[in-house]
Nucleic acid binder design. Structure first.
Lengths: 217, 217, 217, 217
DNA sequence: GACTAACCGAGACGGTACGTCTAGTCTTTTC
DNA sequence: GAAAAGACTAGACGTACCGTCTCGGTTAGTC
């Protein structure tokens, strides 16, 4: 998405062409995957000359990144994660939504393609972080910060660590196609991320009430 | 590495050739990445005919998987994670070792190559799980099970979930090159995974000891 | 026509493929001309991979040269120009045959293509000379030498000059599509090349006889 | 150089632009040859839009023809070949001048480019004949006609044939880079073209004199 | 000890795609 | 309205690899 300023003269970039290329790229990666996505195929399907793609995108990776971004709702400044006051429920809601996105074959394959591109290309992963990951992470951190202020979250915990602890397990199950990637699985992850794994401080709410009540004796 | 039974007659497979191919494949993927690894390059560098590679590996992915496996120590049945009785320290030890492995450029690039292959290929990811992921996961679960038996871990928690909660954040930071991938970061992850993120029961150990001492009254 | 000795190992070159390529190249250049002949087109029409062409011919020019050579009868060592004792008639016969070759559209266009290639490429013109021009020129010079020995040709004249004087005018008319390229035109050229243009010794045979007889007075 | 009538209104064609394009075209063809001359390269080097070239020249060939014409002195109506009375010397003089022109690399390459264009394009060769070849040929024929009138040239010979016989051998040696393209070679060609190759009427003046003198006995 | 099956290096082959270059055309702005 | 700038579709360039297929030669075993 080269945001270069328009030169003072010469023909302008055709926005319809750009849109057609990105839509086609998304379809192709969703259908064939990243490895079998070909600039030639995208050009042919989009009814576009190859050079028009090479003019604006230096490689497959940036093209696919733009294609995925174009489809994603996009986390604008004003967007926010749900906040009902119940942190666990809100996080579970988000995570379940993620699980459901992964269940859409087109989205799944497109995102796998993007991930395959990113993992071997530091520059692309930098762009990905800036334009997709960081905005989403910011949303998550804002929600967690409010929870922290409300005393629902350890005030000393680093919010980036918290985000990773809550969201990474689902991502891992998706990339490696291991473990169950179900709404219930997602909910269990949130529960244990918030309450921890240690046996001495069991997870259900009762023990905690007991603990709080303890000093009352 | 199809371990097909040897036919009754004919020349036997040359193990030196196999080793040379896998070693070269590892070097090439470590040097150029998965996308730019080609069978021709591996064959040429290994001083081997292309057909010799195609005879034994159906595609790049399986070749790279074998190449990485050949280099990895390999989790045999008898292997075990450290068990000093201090669960948190033992897990931190393992995670720090992982972080250090990722710091080796050759290993980093080879593993990225393998991951790129896996993410788009369900069959390969199945093979990867069976031969690399599951054995390692089994080790981890054995250690956690002992902790559970010792009352150091929530007896109700699913061990697969526990493994994901502890190990996924580091993997995620590695794949996306985000967040800090340091020994201290790894230790913080273990600490919070075990104790949770909830604010009502702060993480430092002292309060907990006090709590344990409480019933002594 | 890389006549490299076969390597001791590896698959051998397929002669049928070579023949198919050259035949197709001839057809294409005869149909579209040299400028619009494309390696891709030749490959596609011959049912051959592009690389197979590039493997054996470094460029369009060498391909077209080989294609034309393959079609030409080829002047082998034993070939000779006609020798009836009548030099003028024999040369006229050859030149008329050339004019008739040029009248064949396929041959005309192929040869024009080859000439277009040669005129801008010194290396190719060297190859052309060695393999097409020199052998033909040798034939011509052999015939002229015999005429010289028979006293029918100026014994002091350089045979290369003689060949040029006799054959160049027809070639020129062909390349520039100017003047008449007819059997009669060819015969007139031979006649004047042999007898010269000077007015003092007019060309028709009778006057000369008369001249010889003249002094009898 | 389509000599389209000037439109009655609007901006007029810029003669400086035309000159810049033709000069650049000549340089490019002299440097890279016809095959590697591209409209884009000429436009870029001349600091001109591609469309400006396409507006005035339908293809590479006409552009190069114009470029060469612009450089050539141009045979205007009043120009004449030298006429000292000595036909052989005068023709040799012209032919030697031609040989010397071919020795200039820039002119050589430009003319080769033009010839390559012409040989495959009947329309262009028509234009070439009208604007370059015919005017030159007219000059030559005028000189030969005067020689004919002076009894120095066979009165029956077709002047076009005579021109070809005298000038084609040099052109041939140039296009095919064969034979010697030297002043002496050129002089020998003129000599033999005028006197012929036949042995019975040997070329040096003496034998002829002997013949004439012979009957004196 | 001959036979034979499979392995192996080498490399030709029909293909696909690469990323670049150019052809011509079209659009926009400036002069 | 000419000209410069440059986007656009189309398609060839020459290269790199794909996966398959000989080819000659080399090992093992079995008969």
């Amino acid at each position: 998405m080269p945001t270069a300023q328009q030169p003072s003269t010469g023909r302008r970039r055709n926005p319809a062409t750009r849109a057609a290329i990105l839509a086609t790229a998304f379809d192709v990666v969703a259908e064939l995957g990243y490895a079998r996505l070909t600039i030639e195929k995208v050009a042919a399907r989009a009814g576009v000359g190859k050079q028009t793609i090479y003019r604006w995108w230096p490689n497959k990776g940036t093209l696919v990144l733009d294609a995925v971004l174009e489809r994603s709702v996009g986390a604008d400044e004003s967007a926010e994660l749900p906040d009902t006051g119940d942190l666990e429920a809100d996080l579970a809601h988000v995570l379940v939504a993620t699980v459901e996105e992964f269940a859409d074959p087109a989205f799944d394959r497109a995102l796998r393609g993007l991930t395959a591109a990113i993992i071997e290309d530091p520059e692309l992963s930098e762009a990905y972080r800036e334009r997709l990951d960081e905005p989403m992470r910011e949303l998550k951190k804002r929600r967690l910060r409010r929870a922290q202020e409300a005393g629902q979250l350890d005030p000393d915990v680093d919010l980036d660590l918290a985000v990773d602890l809550i969201f990474a397990p689902v991502t891992r199950r998706w990339t490696e196609r291991s473990g169950d990637l179900t709404p219930d699985g997602a909910r269990a992850i949130v529960r244990h991320a918030l309450r921890g794994l240690s046996g001495a401080a069991p997870s259900p709410p009762r023990p905690r009430r007991r603990r709080t009540a303890g000093p009352a004796h």
